[in-house]
Amino acid sequence: MLSSRRVRPRRTPSPVIRITHWIGALSMLAMIGSGWQIYNASPILPFEFPAWATLGGWLGSGIAWHFAAMWVLMAAGVVYMGYGVLSGHFRRDLRPVGPRAIGRDMAQALRCRLSHAAGHYNAVQRLLYTGVLIVALLTVASGLSIWKPVQLGWLTWLFGGYDVARRIHVAMMTLIVAFLFIHIALALLVPSTLFGMVFGRHPSAAPEASVQKGAAR
């Protein structure tokens, strides 16, 4: 009984989460690079993205990449969201906790004192991950609304019309890029989390976990 309870905190991302995370990450990078290519064709802000950071080489290719990656991202997203809801992953791990806990964990994080127990999501992580999931949903929805302003006219209307929806799409992209900087920096600061997202277990936890599995059986 005790051993099985001790297994729980060692929980690492399930294969479904890990596979959809990395497929989603790659397709999201492709969406961003090709999106910058498309943005450069008719910039709505007084700057362009450097050509070396864009994907596709010219507008037509950028669009081809953008839509190819879109189907991959949506497929990974549907599986991830479905699994997150049905498995309880969202409710258990990602649901944001109260503002006090967020304040406490944020203060610890800023002093680099925040503990990262394996399989446990702290308040800052919960807030960031829930936030980026909502932003990703808004990015996809606003993207669909500027792709199909006639067939999905209701969606375009919800986003305030074609021109506003276009700006929302760019704003949401910016938030995702900002998240990526934070996310990657934190993953590099706490490499065990990166290890877990790649291999599904933590280097230090590995032998212990397998022994406990045996004991539980």
């Binding site: 990078l29 492709a30 690079g33 050509a51 070396w52 950071a53 864009t54 994907l55 596709g56 080489g57 010219w58 037509g60 290719s61 990449w65």
Partner: peptide, 21 residues
């Protein structure tokens, strides 16, 4: 010519998919 353009612009890119075009 356009694909050539894709190659040269993308060659430097971190997302080297551009060159993959």
């Amino acid at each position: 010519l356009m694909l050539k353009g894709a190659l040269s612009l993308g060659g430097l890119s971190m997302l080297s998919g551009c060159a993959l075009d």
